[in-house]
């Protein structure tokens, strides 16, 4: 990675995120930690979506499903008395990966708009499964009375500690995605985005690579789901609503598709915008809707595209 002005901006951004708990203490605004924990968790989800959306060109309109799968895994285990995080979180990742494998194998047979629609349909399917989970609250959701514990290694109920756990996960995720994208595997994913037929023609079976990327993205988002449920002590089908998947796409595009840090920045800007606009007017989406349209028309490369620094990545 060459040091470009862009990288400096992102470095400062990550530094600022690292300072949030300290800053909150100085400003005596402890709610900032809660707010930013939520942002970081959703950033983990957006960064995972970017792997398939930004680098792989797979417009998944059902990515929020993994938030639900991860969250419900934690919630249901906790309901039955298993609160060990070393069991809960890996299982959340594992079930998400399993789901992504099955669904991905079906969805990736389709192209273009069919892919958008079928990922949306599967997400709706799981959403209604969540609504139908009668034993676990159905539509009303499930309260998690005992938080995950990691054998006492991390003070999960201590807000700054939990924040740093989430922040560390985000950093590790970005690092892993960086390694993936710049490996031979990542090269295939990007080749398949720019011309799948040609990639196939030179003898690369892109399907299995795309499926692997789909599963990796789903697994990370499942982890984000486990984190989200832990943070809120609550999980409900609402996190899987199709508009949540839309929000994730918005975060990725706002930050910059196919840029390493972009989606994390995008998520935080998106959620801050929501905070600010909704404090100004009750009808904040009246402003936000047209802003989306303008984003699409005039700033397709998102925040990343506005930063100085020549080539991407």
């Amino acid at each position: 990675m060459r040091v470009t002005p862009r990288l400096v901006v992102y470095g400062l951004f990550m530094l600022a995120l690292a300072m949030v708990p300290t800053l909150a203490q100085v400003l005596a605004e402890p709610f900032l930690v809660t707010l930013f924990t939520r942002m970081i968790i959703l950033a983990v989800a957006a960064v995972s979506l970017n792997l398939i959306l930004g680098y792989g060109g797979m417009v998944s309109f059902g990515h929020a499903v993994y938030l639900g799968i991860g969250g419900y895994t934690v919630g249901i285990l906790a309901e039955h008395g298993t609160t060990n995080g070393f069991v809960q979180w890996p299982l959340a990742i594992g079930i998400s990966a399993l789901y992504a494998t099955v669904v991905g194998a079906i969805c990736l047979r389709t192209r273009g708009v069919y892919f958008i629609m079928i990922t949306l349909a599967f997400a709706q399917l799981v959403y209604f499964v969540g609504v139908g989970l009668y034993a676990y609250g159905g539509d009303d959701g499930l309260t998690i009375y005992t938080r995950s514990d990691f054998a006492g290694l991390i003070r999960m109920s201590h807000k700054p500690s939990f924040y740093y756990l989430c922040f560390a996960i985000l950093c590790i995720e970005i690092l892993i995605i960086h390694r993936i994208v710049h490996s031979r595997f990542g090269l295939v994913i990007r080749a398949s985005k720019s011309n799948d037929r040609r990639a196939n023609a030179i003898g690369i079976p892109t399907f299995r690579y795309r499926l692997a990327a789909f599963v990796i993205a789903g697994s990370f988002c499942g982890l984000a789901g486990a984190m989200l449920a832990t943070q809120a002590d609550y999980i409900s089908p609402a996190v899987m609503h199709w508009t949540r998947s839309g929000d994730l796409i918005v975060s990725v595009v706002l930050g910059g598709m196919g840029s390493l840090f972009g989606p994390a920045v995008g998520t935080i800007v998106f959620l801050l915008l929501e905070e600010v606009l909704s404090s100004l007017t009750e009808y904040w989406q009246l402003v936000f809707g047209p802003m989306l349209l303008l984003l699409v028309l005039f700033a397709k490369r998102g925040i990343d595209g506005l930063l100085p620094g020549g080539d991407r990545g």
């Binding site: 959306l53 417009v59 809707g289 802003m291």
Partner: peptide, 27 residues
């Protein structure tokens, strides 16, 4: 303005329109 764009742009822009109209009706 969207015809020349790709499907992802359509999804995003019309998602924006959808939010706008829901809020407009509420207003």
């Amino acid at each position: 303005t969207l015809y020349a764009r790709d499907h992802l742009d359509h999804v995003l822009a019309t998602f924006g329109l959808l939010l706008f109209f829901n809020e407009l009706v509420r207003l």
